[in-house]
Each structure stands twice: as C-alpha cells, then as structure tokens.
Design a protein around this nucleic acid. Structure first.
Length: 443
RNA sequence: GGAGAGGUGGCCGAGUGGUCGAAGGCAAUCGCUUGCUAAGCGGUCGUACGCGUUAAACCGUACCAAGGGUUCGAAUCCCUUCCUCUCCGCCA
C-alpha cells in the first residue's frame, strides 16, 4: 500500500513511477489524491466539533445544580452538536471506504534501481552461473526420466486430485524430502535464518497484509465449507485460504507489531506446501511438474530497516543462489524490469535454472524487496532506537528454493545416457548415501 | 459437542457515568546515591491521525477485544460479534 500522504504530495512522481510498470490510470490517482485531501479536511472538521463537545461537557460536569434551566439549555444545544458530529463522521466514512479500496488495489512503485521495460522480454540478465551440462545424447525431459525411474506418477496424481497434481514414489518422494531438509539446514545453520513452521491455512486478513487480496483472489484456493462452517465463518468475519506461498504466514508474523531496532534484521525460513489455482494459465506447462496446484517450497523472509533494504536483497538473493551452487545446477540471475515486477514488489531478481529438455532457463526463485508496501498494510513497524517514533519496516522475501522445480532441474541436468540420474554430492547425506537414481530401483 | 470464567497500556493489575490515556506494581531507560553479588531515591516510559515544525515540542482528536446503541458526556450502562482460558466428551 502506498502512503496516501505521499501520493497527494507527489502526485506527478507517483503517476510517472506507476506508468513505468504499465499502470497508466491517471484518473484513479487523481481521485485518490482528492479523496485523501477530503479525508484530512473531514478529520479536521470532526475533531474540531468533538473538541467543542468535550469542552462543553466538561463545563456541564461542573454545574452543581443539574436541574437548573441553564443546565437544561446546555443539554439541548449539545444534543444538536452531537447530531452534527454524527453527520460529519458519516460523511467522512463514505470517502474513507473508497480511499481504502483504491489504496489496496494500487501496485507498488518500482525502485529507481529497477530498469525500464514493459514485459519479461525486457528483463536484464545479470549473471550466469556454471555451464550447460554436456550431454552426448538428446536430453529427455523430467517426465520421461521420472516415469522411467518410477519416481513420478502423474497418472495417479490425476486419479486422486485431477490435473496438475502428482504422486512422488520411492526415491522421488525421498528426493523431495531430502531437498527440503537440505535447504532448511543450509539456511538455518549457515545463513542465520530462524526456522519457523507455520499454518498453511490463513485468514483473508493475512492475505491482504501481503497483497494477494483483494486483487488476486482468483489465484487462490479458498476452502469450501459445509453449511455450518459457512455460517460460523461468516459470522466470525473471516475466510480461510490455502497459502500460495509461505511468504503470507511468515511475513504476517510481525503484523501489528513494533520490533526493537537492535533486533533487526529478522530472518526467517520456512518450508510449506503452496497451493495455487493457476487460473489464467490454462494450457501453459501442462506437461510435467513445472506448474502444479500444490508444491513444496522453502521460503526466506527478512524484516529490515529501510537503510539496509537494498543491500539485504542482495544478501537474500545470494542465499537462494547458494542452494543452486551447492547442488551444482546451472542457472542465471535476471533482474525484472518495471513492467514485469510483481504487484507489491519494487525490485525483483529471478533465479532461473537451466532445463536441457526445454533448452531454456526456467524460474526457480523470485527474490523481492517490497519497501514499506507490505509493512504499511501489515502495520509492521520497528523502533530505530529507544524512545524514537516507530517507523515502517521493509520486507523482503525469496524462494530458497521451489522444491518441485529443483527436483525437475536435478533430474534433467544430472541425467545419464543410460537413464540413470546422478545425485549431487551435497544431497547424498540426505539420500542415505545413494549416488545415483537407477531405473527400476525404487529403494 | 456440553458446562463455566474472562478480555484494560510490553507484562501484571485497579477502575461501575464527568476530575481517566487510564491508579499501583513489574519490566525498560536516564540520572543521583551507596565502596564490597546487590539495594535505595528521583525522572522518563502507548499508538494513530490532524495541525504545526528544517526536525521536534506544543496543541487537538481517537483508541480500555470489535461493531452498534443509550446519554449533554461511556473503560464504566445496553445489544451483537469475535477471541482466550478451564472442565467434560471426541480426536492425530
């Protein structure tokens, strides 16, 4: 969420910034500025009226004779004042609702260090790590490999849950678990992240905090409820959704809190399942486990002071990269242009891993700096020093990494001519010492 | 699912219509004092918005779970909702 004050005071700058990401609806911004100003005027008015009422009421308290004519007269005039206050409050509320709505649907401003560009084609490749695996044969894709190995079972995934679900078997399931374990160990033990375990079902308020709601409800799975549940839940004023990423519960950890400055930065890592409806991506990546409705991910989240934020993004990205490096995977780092960064982000690096079968790099991690965009929604603040006024935190997050896609990349990059797949040394301790996946060998 | 209790500042905890943003204690912090692990004394010590300022301060308003109501005036009275805890039942 943008600061309404900042928007009114720097309208031209905000328009220009949002235009960089393709948001050219100036009328909405003008409306927002108007509403924000009106809101301030309304506050000033109601405050003044209330002040008058408070003053007069105090005076009445001091009148000894509560049955005197003067007392009755005062009471009458204050009753009228009370009505005026109510009317003023009512008027203020109307504009406020519209203002909040606009603020919640407005995307973040790109950082000055985010390059211009309209779409993913304008993203900037920053660096490439490693080299393409030399394969003396035509690479098979992970679906062929996985099915031949007996570790990926798409048919049964579909039987159980429909399209975009998979069952992992034997060493496939083991690999998923090994990757999760490996990533968490590296981040917790070496990168200084506090490991957290969080719910995979969250309230709509949490999703509003990180920005998925109200705009992107169609991408989420909201849990269906029977009649009783529905009744209770409506009454309780919140809906439950499956999380699309651990970013949601982990970032919301510090909603409505004020952290002490000397405890920053706060770094958390979490593994969770993630659930995405993938609405609007019909026909895209239908083959294989690149795009599933449910997948596991290890997520990194950092709460930092604004001054450190941009450097913190480099740090967080390097932590995610470190996983790819230890696994010996060929990848590149891409900086997203203003037209391609996510709704709440102001600067994003994507890590893309090489997939031989597709002869291309595919996203495996996205590391973003949100500025105070999420923090303002969340009311996540920090106190720079004792006694100082609280300020909004900056939040960052990134995948470290998407486990399903890591598994895909491993299969494809480490495939051998005979259909077996080498297990990179870093992962072997987590695979019971195994060095290789062999077709027909489930244990 | 059944029965009961309760939600006040970082924590504990007073407060049943005006003098309450809220006693007292703890924690924290600053200073003073005392030569001996420690204690004593004093000050400070919520947040947001508005106004204002270079920035503050000051000032105003709001907030005692949330929303609504009664009243000239609500932490206090009424209604609705949410949440927490305890016991029983069920359950990984």
């Amino acid at each position: 969420m943008l600061d309404p004050r900042f928007v009114t005071d720097n309208l031209a700058e905000v328009k220009a910034g949002l235009a960089r990401r393709g948001f050219t609806d100036e009328a909405t911004l003008d409306r927002l500025a108007t509403l924000a100003q009106a809101r301030r005027a309304a506050i000033a008015e109601t405050d003044a009226l209330r002040e008058e009422r408070n003053r007069e009421s105090d005076a009445m308290a001091k009148v000894a004779d509560k049955r005197s004519p003067e007392f009755a007269a005062k009471r009458e005039s204050l009753r009228a004042l009370g009505d005026r206050i109510k009317a003023a409050e009512e008027a203020a509320r109307a504009g406020e609702a519209e203002l909040d709505e606009l603020l919640l649907t407005l995307p973040n401003l790109p950082a000055s260090s985010t390059p211009d560009g309209r779409s993913e084609h304008d993203n900037v490749e920053l660096r490439v790590h490693g080299t393409r695996p030399e394969l003396a044969f035509t690479p098979r894709d992970h679906v062929d490999l996985g099915e031949a190995l007996g570790i990926l079972d798409f048919e049964r995934g579909t039987k159980l849950s429909g399209a975009r679900f998979v069952v992992l078997r034997g060493m496939g399931a083991r690999l998923e678990r090994a990757l999760m374990q490996f990533m968490m160990d590296v981040h917790a033990d070496e990168h200084g992240y506090e490991e957290v375990w969080v719910p995979a079902l969250v309230k709509d308020s949490a999703l509003r905090g990180t920005g998925q709601l109200p705009k992107f409800e169609k991408d989420l799975f909201r849990i269906a409820k029977d009649a009783d549940w529905e009744k209770e839940s409506e009454a309780s004023g919140h809906e439950l959704y499956l999380i699309p990423t651990a970013e949601v519960p982990v970032t919301n950890l510090h909603a409505d809190e004020i952290l002490e400055g000397d405890t920053l930065p706060r770094a958390y890592c979490a593994y969770t399942p993630c659930f995405r409806s993938e609405a609007g991506s019909h026909g895209r990546d239908t083959r294989g486990m690149i795009r599933q409705h449910q997948f596991d991910k290890v997520e990194l989240v950092r709460f930092v002071a604004p001054e450190q934020a941009e450097a913190e993004l480099e740090k967080l990205t390097s932590h995610a990269e470190s996983i790819l490096q230890r696994l010996g995977l060929h990848y590149r780092v891409v900086q997203l242009c203003a037209g391609d960064i996510g709704f709440g982000s102001q600067k994003t690096y994507d890590l893309e891993v090489w997939l031989p079968s597709q002869d291309t790099f595919r996203e495996i991690s996205s590391c973003s700096w949100f500025g105070d965009f999420q923090a303002r929604r969340l009311k996540a603040r920090y106190r720079p020093a004792p006694k100082e006024k609280p300020r909004l935190l900056h939040t960052l997050n990134g995948s470290g990494l998407a486990i399903g896609r890591t598994l895909v990349a491993l299969l494809e990059q480490y495939q051998q001519a005979d259909g077996s797949v080498l297990i990179p040394p870093a992962l072997r301790p987590y695979m019971g010492g195994r060095e290789r996946l062999v077709p027909g060998k489930l244990t």
